[in-house]
Design a protein around this nucleic acid. Structure first.
Lengths: 148, 148
DNA sequence: GTTATTGCAAATTATTTGCACTTGG
DNA sequence: CCAAGTGCAAATAATTTGCAATAAC
């Protein structure tokens, strides 16, 4: 099922409405391959319709996060970036702490760790929504070191 | 080696100075068993010396983070909390996404996962500085569910 | 029609900064 | 001494909010 259909479904499910602004934000997010800030999203949205307000962008991003379709992460301390994530298979998110890029992978390699943490430390992680922070290939190539 | 000695050492090493304010902030951090906000730290600091400014608290917290003695995490979206962490052994930090509490554990249970991510996805994590987000025992007991 | 949603502008709020003064080494 | 550190007050800046107008359903 495509992102758009998932979105429409979830909106209906909660009694929310499909608006022009929400469609635009979602389509703009598709145009980015890496993590982007709210302002970058806003700028791109403006190119499509200059009437859309930045507060609407924020409100839509929050909605998409509630729906699990977008994740956001803090990078560089002050910058918050957003990512559209696949709505298919549950998966772990490898989030680059340098650029905020997100890579979705299968959950199995972390299953052992998860059960270890639960049995030994009573610490519960949600594998279907597990974020691992590190360095992506690109940022490694730029010579950035893993310890921040 | 105690936190205080480590702190003094690191300060010397970088040519920074040991001030009253820095000592107070560090001692106040010892008094908290769980994660606290900058303002909570500031309030406690004020009880000891009302002359210390909140900007100094922020500056000191940043310094302590640079030294790897404090970690901070975002919880609940808007709240940022700080934790004094053990200066001994390198370890993984289990950070509760609900209350911000940090539990330090040994690195070995995650070694397999780390090498898997590196070989299969070219994604590099720093095991000595690995943060895993989840729910601590206390928050689980409060009936909070792992998916946020 | 009714109610969610929006645009606008103003508010919020945690954090940061410039600078003259103070203090540690 | 003198560079690092501080307090103060003001600036910042990203995000949020109240509300009347608008548009989905």
């Amino acid at each position: 099922m495509s992102c758009e259909l998932v979105f429409i479904d979830k909106l209906k499910e909660k009694g929310f409405r499909l608006t022009m602004q929400r469609e635009i934000v979602l389509s703009v997010l598709h145009g980015f391959s890496s993590a982007v800030s709210a302002e970058e999203i806003y700028n791109r949205v403006q190119e499509i319709s200059s009437a859309v307000d930045i507060s609407t962008v924020y409100r839509t991003l929050e909605l998409l996060q509630d729906f699990g379709m977008v994740i956001s992460s803090d990078i560089g301390g002050d910058h918050r970036v957003y990512n559209l994530v696949s709505v298919e298979e549950p998966h772990i998110h490898l989030v680059c702490k340098e650029c905020g890029q997100v890579l979705g992978i299968e959950t199995d390699p972390a299953e052992k760790l998860a059960s270890y943490l639960e049995s030994h430390h009573n610490f519960l992680i949600d594998l279907k929504n597990f974020h691992i922070s590190g360095l992506c290939e690109d940022c490694q190539e730029k010579g950035i070191s893993p310890n921040e």
